[in-house]
Amino acid sequence: MSKILGIDYGKVITGLSITDNKQVFAFGLDAIPTKQLMNFLESFFFNEKIDKIVIGLPKKLNNQKEILIETDIQAFINKFCIKYPKIIIERLDERFTSKIAFNTMIELGLKKKKRRKKAILNKISAIIILQSYLAKKEKEINL
Protein backbone atom coordinates (compact mmCIF):
# COMPACT_ATOMS: atom_id res chain seq x y z
CA MET A 1 0.00 0.00 0.00
CA SER A 2 1.23 3.48 -0.75
CA LYS A 3 1.52 6.28 1.77
CA ILE A 4 -0.34 9.58 2.09
CA LEU A 5 1.50 12.89 2.37
CA GLY A 6 0.12 15.69 4.55
CA ILE A 7 0.89 19.34 3.83
CA ASP A 8 0.50 22.39 6.03
CA TYR A 9 1.23 24.98 3.35
CA GLY A 10 2.70 28.25 4.54
CA LYS A 11 3.92 31.37 2.79
CA VAL A 12 7.45 30.86 4.14
CA ILE A 13 7.65 27.38 5.69
CA THR A 14 5.62 24.31 4.71
CA GLY A 15 5.15 21.44 7.14
CA LEU A 16 5.05 17.89 5.84
CA SER A 17 3.82 14.64 7.36
CA ILE A 18 3.45 11.09 6.08
CA THR A 19 1.49 7.98 6.94
CA ASP A 20 2.77 4.52 7.67
CA ASN A 21 2.33 1.85 4.98
CA LYS A 22 -1.10 0.86 6.33
CA GLN A 23 -2.28 4.50 6.37
CA VAL A 24 -3.21 4.37 10.06
CA PHE A 25 -0.77 6.81 11.69
CA ALA A 26 0.68 10.16 10.65
CA PHE A 27 4.30 11.04 11.39
CA GLY A 28 6.23 14.27 11.01
CA LEU A 29 8.37 14.29 7.91
CA ASP A 30 9.94 17.72 7.56
CA ALA A 31 9.39 21.46 7.44
CA ILE A 32 10.97 23.12 4.46
CA PRO A 33 11.09 26.57 2.89
CA THR A 34 8.01 26.83 0.66
CA LYS A 35 10.16 28.05 -2.24
CA GLN A 36 11.87 24.64 -2.22
CA LEU A 37 8.67 22.56 -1.93
CA MET A 38 8.39 21.37 -5.54
CA ASN A 39 12.08 20.40 -5.67
CA PHE A 40 11.75 18.54 -2.37
CA LEU A 41 8.66 16.67 -3.60
CA GLU A 42 10.36 15.68 -6.84
CA SER A 43 13.20 13.92 -5.03
CA PHE A 44 10.85 12.59 -2.34
CA PHE A 45 8.47 10.99 -4.87
CA PHE A 46 11.44 9.29 -6.48
CA ASN A 47 11.93 7.23 -3.28
CA GLU A 48 8.36 6.96 -1.90
CA LYS A 49 5.12 5.73 -3.44
CA ILE A 50 2.53 8.42 -2.77
CA ASP A 51 -0.92 8.24 -4.37
CA LYS A 52 -2.61 10.98 -2.35
CA ILE A 53 -1.77 14.23 -0.60
CA VAL A 54 -3.90 16.03 1.96
CA ILE A 55 -3.49 19.79 2.04
CA GLY A 56 -4.91 21.96 4.79
CA LEU A 57 -7.82 24.19 3.83
CA PRO A 58 -7.49 27.45 5.77
CA LYS A 59 -10.84 28.78 6.94
CA LYS A 60 -12.00 31.51 9.28
CA LEU A 61 -14.35 30.86 12.17
CA ASN A 62 -17.30 31.95 10.00
CA ASN A 63 -16.43 29.08 7.58
CA GLN A 64 -15.11 31.39 4.85
CA LYS A 65 -11.77 30.68 3.22
CA GLU A 66 -8.66 32.65 4.18
CA ILE A 67 -8.28 34.27 0.76
CA LEU A 68 -4.62 35.40 0.94
CA ILE A 69 -2.97 32.05 1.69
CA GLU A 70 -5.61 30.10 -0.25
CA THR A 71 -4.56 31.93 -3.43
CA ASP A 72 -0.99 30.67 -2.89
CA ILE A 73 -2.24 27.16 -2.12
CA GLN A 74 -4.33 27.09 -5.31
CA ALA A 75 -1.31 28.18 -7.36
CA PHE A 76 0.70 25.35 -5.79
CA ILE A 77 -2.10 22.82 -6.45
CA ASN A 78 -2.34 23.88 -10.10
CA LYS A 79 1.41 23.50 -10.57
CA PHE A 80 1.38 20.18 -8.70
CA CYS A 81 -1.50 18.74 -10.78
CA ILE A 82 0.33 19.54 -14.00
CA LYS A 83 3.48 17.76 -12.82
CA TYR A 84 1.77 14.88 -10.95
CA PRO A 85 -1.66 14.31 -12.55
CA LYS A 86 -2.07 10.82 -11.06
CA ILE A 87 -1.68 11.89 -7.43
CA ILE A 88 -5.01 12.64 -5.77
CA ILE A 89 -5.32 15.88 -3.79
CA GLU A 90 -7.74 16.15 -0.91
CA ARG A 91 -8.36 19.18 1.28
CA LEU A 92 -9.11 19.21 4.99
CA ASP A 93 -10.30 22.09 7.15
CA GLU A 94 -7.25 23.18 9.12
CA ARG A 95 -8.93 25.55 11.57
CA PHE A 96 -7.20 25.48 14.95
CA THR A 97 -4.35 23.19 13.82
CA SER A 98 -1.74 25.86 14.58
CA LYS A 99 -3.30 26.45 18.01
CA ILE A 100 -3.42 22.71 18.73
CA ALA A 101 0.17 22.35 17.50
CA PHE A 102 1.33 25.20 19.74
CA ASN A 103 -0.43 23.68 22.76
CA THR A 104 1.18 20.33 21.91
CA MET A 105 4.59 21.99 21.96
CA ILE A 106 3.84 23.34 25.45
CA GLU A 107 2.61 19.93 26.64
CA LEU A 108 5.79 18.34 25.30
CA GLY A 109 7.77 20.74 27.46
CA LEU A 110 9.47 22.64 24.65
CA LYS A 111 11.14 25.80 25.87
CA LYS A 112 9.94 29.20 24.63
CA LYS A 113 12.89 29.52 22.26
CA LYS A 114 11.99 26.25 20.49
CA ARG A 115 8.27 27.12 20.43
CA ARG A 116 9.10 30.22 18.38
CA LYS A 117 10.48 28.05 15.57
CA LYS A 118 7.88 28.09 12.82
CA ALA A 119 9.28 24.91 11.28
CA ILE A 120 8.36 22.83 14.35
CA LEU A 121 4.88 24.36 14.49
CA ASN A 122 4.24 23.70 10.79
CA LYS A 123 5.47 20.12 11.02
CA ILE A 124 3.18 19.38 13.97
CA SER A 125 0.30 21.10 12.14
CA ALA A 126 0.92 18.84 9.13
CA ILE A 127 0.75 15.80 11.42
CA ILE A 128 -2.55 17.03 12.87
CA ILE A 129 -4.02 17.66 9.40
CA LEU A 130 -3.06 14.21 8.18
CA GLN A 131 -4.09 12.35 11.35
CA SER A 132 -7.45 14.18 11.28
CA TYR A 133 -7.93 13.07 7.70
CA LEU A 134 -7.14 9.47 8.62
CA ALA A 135 -9.57 9.60 11.56
CA LYS A 136 -12.28 11.03 9.29
CA LYS A 137 -11.77 8.23 6.75
CA GLU A 138 -11.84 5.59 9.50
CA LYS A 139 -15.07 7.05 10.84
CA GLU A 140 -16.65 6.96 7.37
CA ILE A 141 -15.67 3.31 6.98
CA ASN A 142 -17.23 2.38 10.32
CA LEU A 143 -20.58 4.10 9.66
Rank of each mutant, 00 (worst) to 15 (best):
S2K: 09
I4P: 00
L5G: 01
I7S: 05
D8F: 06
Y9R: 01
G10I: 01
K11R: 07
K11P: 00
K11F: 08
V12C: 06
V12T: 10
V12N: 10
I13G: 00
G15A: 09
G15T: 05
L16E: 09
L16W: 05
S17H: 04
I18G: 02
I18N: 06
T19E: 07
T19D: 05
D20E: 10
N21H: 08
Q23G: 06
Q23Y: 08
F25V: 04
A26E: 02
F27E: 03
G28T: 02
L29S: 03
D30M: 04
D30S: 08
D30L: 04
D30I: 04
A31E: 05
P33M: 14
T34L: 07
Q36N: 15
Q36V: 03
L37T: 05
F40K: 10
L41S: 05
L41Q: 05
E42A: 14
F46H: 14
N47P: 00
N47L: 14
N47Y: 15
E48Y: 11
E48I: 11
K49S: 14
K52P: 00
I53T: 06
V54W: 15
V54R: 04
I55R: 05
I55K: 08
G56F: 04
G56E: 07
K59H: 11
K59V: 12
L61A: 13
L61D: 09
Q64R: 08
E66K: 06
L68P: 00
E70H: 09
I73Q: 10
Q74R: 13
Q74Y: 13
I77S: 09
I77D: 11
K79V: 01
K79N: 11
F80D: 02
C81M: 13
C81V: 01
C81Q: 14
K83L: 09
Y84D: 10
P85L: 14
K86V: 02
I87N: 05
I88M: 11
I89T: 08
E90F: 03
R91A: 03
D93Q: 02
R95N: 11
F96V: 00
T97H: 03
T97R: 06
K99G: 05
A101Y: 08
A101C: 05
T104K: 13
I106F: 05
E107H: 11
E107P: 00
E107N: 13
L108V: 00
L108I: 02
G109E: 12
G109Q: 12
K111V: 04
K112G: 06
K113Y: 14
K113R: 15
K114A: 15
K114H: 15
R115S: 02
A119E: 15
I120W: 11
L121Y: 06
K123G: 08
K123R: 12
K123E: 15
I124Q: 09
S125A: 15
A126P: 00
A126E: 08
I128Y: 13
I129F: 12
L130Q: 04
Q131M: 14
S132D: 07
Y133P: 01
A135T: 07
A135I: 09
E138H: 13
K139P: 00
K139N: 15
K139A: 15
K139H: 13
K139I: 14
E140S: 10
N142P: 00
N142G: 01
L143T: 04
